[in-house]
Amino acid sequence: MRVATLAPEFVESFPSTLEPGVLYVSIEFTTCAHLCACGCGEEVFTPLSPAQWSFAFNGRDISMRPSIGNWTLPCQSHYIIERGRVTWSYQFTKEQIAANRARDRRALRTRDEPEAAHEASEAAISQEQENKRTNRFWTRMWSHIWGG
């Protein structure tokens, strides 16, 4: 049976059996879980990260972004969780699903790029400092040899 609302339950780890109508939130594992809102009984896990899902808790209800698209499940349900209410959305085409997955893969790849760029920048600065030291050494050597 479809559910119209999902009530938040903050947990350290997920129970072995998820209850319908409950959105489990594990801060420790940065993941949410619930049974599919369509009532098919499938478990839905949503990893929390800037490149995946995020949630807002107002002290009573949870909203999740982006929408929940269960493209790998037989039901392929698609819904939005806003202030604990489930709002049904349109069915994606195969092309939209493929485009969405490609965008998700890019977001996951690039989420680590700022750190990699920072490390590359630090390496470049370190190399530049080493080059300056080497240049100073050779400048001093040439000055000593040529009396400059």
Results as ranks from 00 to 15, higher is better:
46 T>Q: 04
120 A>T: 10
43 E>D: 09
76 Q>C: 07
1 M>K: 14
32 C>K: 02
77 S>R: 02
31 T>F: 00
63 S>N: 05
54 S>K: 11
135 N>Y: 08
80 I>L: 15
110 T>R: 10
19 E>V: 12
113 E>C: 04
50 P>R: 14
12 E>A: 12
14 F>K: 03
115 E>D: 13
46 T>K: 04
54 S>Y: 04
125 I>H: 14
134 T>F: 04
71 W>Y: 06
11 V>F: 00
26 S>I: 07
66 P>S: 03
115 E>F: 14
67 S>R: 01
132 K>G: 03
87 T>S: 11
70 N>A: 04
24 Y>S: 03
59 G>H: 03
16 S>W: 00
138 W>Y: 13
51 A>M: 07
13 S>Q: 06
28 E>H: 11
65 R>W: 00
139 T>L: 11
64 M>P: 00
117 A>K: 11
138 W>K: 07
76 Q>I: 00
80 I>A: 15
32 C>T: 07
116 A>F: 06
55 F>H: 01
112 D>R: 11
67 S>Q: 00
20 P>M: 09
63 S>W: 00
104 D>V: 10
104 D>E: 10
21 G>S: 07
58 N>F: 03
68 I>D: 01
116 A>N: 06
72 T>Y: 05
60 R>A: 13
73 L>V: 02
50 P>Y: 09
134 T>I: 09
